[in-house]
């Protein structure tokens, strides 16, 4: 295991060609005005996301993980710093450009699933495939997470783990370049959590989607290509896992 103090440590070349940088954040700062106070959620964070990697972002509450993920996913804008996606500068993008960025390139998975209760599993996925350019078929996406047979069920008829897998299917159905998962297993028990992590890993490996997962749950870090630790709004350390564990091997 290699541990480096900065996120811009060398990519895991493992003797082959250099992987492509998909998203590059430099010196990101985010300040939230809270009445008379200012909350500095990010204080100059640097991070690169490499094509096809599975990255796990860990750190204590308030360390800035979610803020960083939200900015990288185009849900929020930085106060300072730059963010580049491929050749596009996102740091000065307006709301419309950020919407387009999310629409074309980003998939999100949240702790609380956020499925539309009035749409079935398949329709929830179709919500995205309807507006995407080259999506997979909704059923295909559901099959990818093992939910093909449950496609006609409404969220209220699905378990928490199943709902989260539908959310993953919905996030990846448009074949995004980036998949961001914010505490995807936070509301799930161990067994269900493992099923969800398997789905994420499957998507990452089969589709080659660059994936970033935020978690409080340290053992999950063992399934990542790279583990980034945050603290006080900065990247504290980055480590590359030379041997990744399968989700089924994880214990907590």
């Amino acid at each position: 295991m290699t541990v480096s103090p900065s996120a811009s440590s060398d990519p895991p070349t493992t003797g082959r060609r250099l992987p492509e940088i998909v998203l590059e954040a430099k010196n990101l700062t985010k300040v939230y005005p809270m009445g008379e106070l200012e909350v500095r959620a990010l204080e100059g964070a640097d991070l690169e996301l490499w094509s096809g990697e599975l990255l796990v972002l860990v750190g204590p509450s308030g360390s800035g993980k979610s803020t960083l993920l939200n900015i990288m996913g185009g849900l929020d804008s930085p106060t300072r710093g730059t963010l580049r996606f491929q050749n596009q500068d996102l740091s000065r993008a307006d709301a419309q450009q950020l919407t387009d960025f999310r629409r074309e390139h980003v998939g999100f998975v949240f702790q609380f699933y956020n499925l539309i209760p009035s749409l079935t599993a398949q329709e929830n996925v179709a919500l995205v495939t309807d507006i995407a350019e080259d999506p997979m078929r909704p059923v295909e996406a559901l099959e990818l997470v093992g939910l093909g047979p449950r496609k006609d069920h409404f969220p209220s008829q699905l378990s928490g783990g199943e709902q989260q897998r539908v959310a993953i299917a919905r996030a990846v159905a448009k074949r995004p370049k980036l998949l961001f998962c914010d505490e995807p297993t936070g509301a799930l028990d161990y067994k269900t959590g493992i099923r969800v992590l398997e789905a994420i890993q499957q998507v990452n490996q089969q589709l080659g989607t660059t994936t970033a997962v935020i978690t409080h749950n340290m053992p999950i870090a063992a399934m990542a290509d790279r583990v980034v630790t945050m603290g006080d709004g900065r990247i504290q350390s980055t480590q590359i896992n030379e041997r990744k564990l399968q989700p089924s091997e994880l214990r907590w």
């Binding site: 849900l75 419309q96 919407t99 387009d100 999310r102 629409r103 074309e104 980003v106 999100f108 956020n114 499925l115 539309i116 919500l127 995205v128 507006i131 919905r170």
Partner: peptide, 8 residues
Amino acid sequence: TMRVLGFR
């Protein structure tokens, strides 16, 4: 959610 998914 729709906004996050990229709806305008």
